[in-house]
């Protein structure tokens, strides 16, 4: 539906890619570990290697959780929104098909949060 307005109504998106000066937004969520409340957001250049996401950002945020030390990284299921994908850790975000404002969700089978609550 188009908006009803009294005059021409055309305003830019607040989060258009060009507002990030060569970077793009990326959201990260660890499924069934809701102690962290919500996904976190990063602004990264598209040539950032995927391994940086895991080694730096995911580790810094999520290692507080007692499940983190038990993650078997070979079993992790990665999703870009609802679509399962297999990231190549050595390749960049762009080469892994990750675009502006994509949401990366990862599930760690067998780990369901504190006392299995999803938290």
């Amino acid at each position: 539906m188009a908006i009803k307005a009294l005059a021409d109504y055309d305003f830019p998106s607040s989060d258009a890619l060009e507002n990030y000066k060569g970077k793009q937004l990326l959201y990260i969520n660890w499924e069934r570990h809701r102690m962290f409340s919500r996904p976190f957001v990063l602004a990264l250049t598209p040539d950032t290697p995927f391994s940086v996401i895991v080694d730096q950002y995911i580790t810094n945020c999520y290692s507080y959780h007692p499940d983190f030390a038990h993650i078997d990284w070979t079993q992790v299921v990665w999703q870009n929104s609802d679509t399962v994908f297999h990231p190549d850790m050595t390749k960049s975000l762009q080469e892994n098909g990750i675009g502006h404002k994509d949401l990366i969700r990862f599930t760690t089978p067998g780990l369901d949060g504190i006392a299995g609550t999803g938290y």
Binding site: S13, L17, E31, D102, R105, D112, G113, T117
Partner: peptide, 14 residues
């Protein structure tokens, strides 16, 4: 136990 996510595209942006 799962977070609710919904998304859409408008003029190419998510």
């Amino acid at each position: 136990m799962s977070t609710c996510f919904r998304e859409t595209r408008y003029k190419g942006e998510k």
